[in-house]
Simulated scan of single mutants.
Amino acid sequence: MTKIAIILGSTRPGRNGAAVADWVLDVAKQRSDAEFELVDLALYPLPLLDEALPPSLGQYQNAHTKAWASKIAEFDGFVFVTPEYNHSTTGALKNALDYLYAEWNNKAAGFVSYGSGGGTRAVEHLRLIASELQIATVRAQVALSLLTDFENYSDFKPGPHHQPAVEAMLDQVVSWSKALQPLRAGA
């Protein structure tokens, strides 16, 4: 069965992302074409990249890196849930991406973002990073506004019009993850 990680990319105390990631997981669990698991970066406390060798060599020295690599290697694809901080993604998510290389390769990814402008600039940056890591990003994405999808900027209340966008993004992530399987098998 195809396995997709829903990666919660914020570690900030009081973060809005936990409710967003739980919502995506609830939608995903209604499907039968893949297994979905929430991966919370807060449970993988990675210091600023502290490996001496480049991740592309795959010679990880630290226990926290090995645990992170083992978790990410389990999956065929990803849904990144990210806020937008200063026109980009979070430092925690960027750092987590930078730790690994082969574990990301030849897998698909979709994005669910949130912020005052829907978090779209965070996704633009993530697409560039994903490309370098050989992650195939899908076109469909979900952009949530702090102004209209959160009450008081903190209580997540997504509009029903977002449900089809989540479904479309998941359709693409699952199908692309399956299509990339031969590349992962040959690696």
Rank of each mutant, 00 (worst) to 15 (best):
73 A>W: 04
142 V>W: 00
134 Q>S: 11
29 K>N: 14
50 D>V: 09
136 A>S: 13
44 Y>E: 06
132 E>W: 10
97 L>W: 13
65 T>I: 05
72 I>A: 09
136 A>M: 11
186 G>L: 14
17 G>P: 05
28 A>C: 11
102 A>P: 01
11 T>C: 14
26 D>Q: 14
139 R>W: 08
2 T>K: 14
100 L>Q: 10
33 D>K: 03
82 T>Y: 07
153 Y>V: 10
75 F>S: 02
177 S>F: 04
23 W>A: 03
141 Q>C: 07
144 L>C: 10
106 N>P: 04
140 A>V: 01
41 L>P: 01
183 L>R: 01
116 S>K: 05
159 G>A: 15
43 L>P: 02
104 W>V: 01
17 G>I: 09
179 A>K: 08
142 V>R: 02
11 T>A: 13
48 L>N: 07
86 N>I: 10
57 L>Q: 14
89 T>Y: 02
89 T>R: 00
137 T>K: 02
23 W>E: 10
42 A>S: 15
165 A>G: 00
187 A>G: 06
95 N>L: 09
83 P>K: 07
173 V>M: 02
129 I>N: 07
93 L>D: 03
108 A>L: 06
54 P>I: 09
168 A>T: 15
1 M>Y: 12
33 D>C: 06
158 P>E: 10
15 R>G: 12
90 T>M: 09
53 L>F: 11
175 S>Y: 01
123 V>T: 09
133 L>I: 05
50 D>G: 15
76 D>H: 07
181 Q>E: 13
41 L>H: 03
64 H>M: 13
40 D>F: 06
102 A>H: 13
4 I>N: 02
162 H>A: 12
6 I>D: 02
19 A>Y: 07
93 L>C: 10
37 E>P: 04
89 T>G: 09
166 V>M: 10
27 V>C: 12
135 I>T: 00
52 A>T: 09
53 L>V: 08
128 L>Y: 08
90 T>G: 14
39 V>G: 05
31 R>K: 10
69 A>F: 07
123 V>W: 00
23 W>I: 09
178 K>D: 05
14 G>Y: 12
94 K>G: 08
25 L>F: 04
69 A>W: 05
146 L>W: 07
101 Y>F: 14
82 T>P: 07
122 A>G: 12
107 K>A: 01
22 D>Y: 08
49 L>T: 11
183 L>I: 03
176 W>F: 15
179 A>P: 08
159 G>F: 07
127 R>H: 08
113 S>Q: 02
180 L>A: 04
171 D>A: 06
